[in-house]
């Protein structure tokens, strides 16, 4: 006897806001194309319940100095590319990254302490060398972040960069720089739905339209709080689909940074033999963190290992049923 089973489906009222990154020549920038994220009207990859007009994308993390504290596995995999952000970004683009996440670590006051002007020049060089949209991060120290990102924002006005990080204690200058120069801002809250919402409110209260804000919920690495991030992202996305405007922004996760920070991805010695080969282990750590974040609703995953780029692109394509 034939049985017809009706799959129960959920209809959501809300929609994630679409955020466009990069600007083409006609739009006042110099990118070959733009990347739009967001726009979902359903939970991650549940295409039978709603639309996913823009699939999640991979951003490759590129530094403007050779990263001294990175796992040897990563440094080996990239080879000489890490010595020059231009070469590095070009290789990442060739490997299939859709965005370049350029971290201006050279400006770290406790390190090289490069000037904002130098950093802005680096951004221009990378913009000239690759035609993908850019995310640009300061050194991660509030005062210097502000100086650097203001210089970058002005030097690259109109390119619709995504600038980060805005945090509750330090967002005004970066938002102002975005406002004045047509960029997108990335806001990070410490794994907390309400603080993320509050940050969104504060940023948009300054006049930055919601379609120019990305939410970074703070990523816990696999085994290091990933479940908290997962649950906060899930709640943000539920909120978005239920129609809560202040949660309707696309999500970005700094997966590589968190995954490769952990001992499991770094330690070759003094660990149980069963952990196996370090190179494989580190890569798996990053991939599993990335896929979990994608399942939780991530729109942009920022990755570190060159091989992860292609693999995660493949995962996204499969999950999208392509």
């Amino acid at each position: 006897m034939p049985v017809t089973v009706e799959v129960p489906t959920e209809k959501w009222a809300g929609k994630v806001i679409e955020v466009k990154l990069g600007a083409t020549k006609e739009e006042g920038g110099s990118r070959a194309g733009t990347v739009t994220v967001g726009g979902e009207t359903t939970l991650p990859f549940l295409t039978f319940e709603g639309g996913i007009p823009n699939q999640p994308v991979v951003a490759a993390e590129v530094w403007d100095v050779e990263p001294a504290d990175w796992s040897p596995v990563l440094l080996e995999a990239w080879g000489n590319a890490v010595k020059d952000p231009v070469v590095w970004a070009q290789q990442a683009a060739a490997l299939g990254a859709k965005l370049i996440a350029l971290k201006l670590r050279s400006t770290d006051p406790d390190g090289q302490n490069a000037s904002p002007a130098e950093a802005a020049a680096t951004v221009k060089r990378v913009l000239a060398a690759v035609d993908l949209p850019l995310l640009v991060y300061g050194p991660g120290q509030a005062e210097k972040d502000n100086d650097v990102l203001v210089a970058v924002a002005e030097a690259s006005a109109g390119e619709r960069l995504a600038l980060g990080l805005c945090e509750q204690s330090n967002y005004r200058t970066i938002v102002a720089a975005c406002l004045g120069n047509g960029h997108v801002a990335i806001g990070r809250a410490p794994i907390d739905v309400n603080m993320q919402k509050q940050l969104n409110i504060l940023m948009s209260d300054m006049g930055l339209p919601l379609d120019r804000i990305l939410m970074d919920p703070t990523t816990g690495g696999l085994g290091y709080g990933i479940e908290y991030t997962y649950s906060v992202m899930e709640r943000l996305r539920f909120g978005a689909l239920q129609g809560d405007r202040m949660t309707q922004l696309p999500l970005i996760n700094t997966v590589g940074e968190e995954a490769w920070r952990q001992k499991e991805a770094k330690a070759a010695e003094g660990v149980p033999e069963a952990w196996g080969d370090l190179a494989k282990r580190g890569l798996s750590w990053e991939m599993l963190t990335a896929t979990s974040m994608l399942e939780a609703g991530s729109d942009i995953v920022v990755l570190r290992h060159p091989n992860s780029i292609g693999i995660i692109n493949g995962v996204i394509a499969k999950l999208m049923g392509r």
Binding site: N146, V150, E154, R172, T173, V175, A176, A177, L179, G180, N181, M206
Partner: peptide, 12 residues
């Protein structure tokens, strides 16, 4: 204008 404008907007 831009340099002061940012400072006026961010409150510095």
């Amino acid at each position: 204008l831009r340099s002061w404008g940012i400072q006026l907007v961010d409150g510095r």
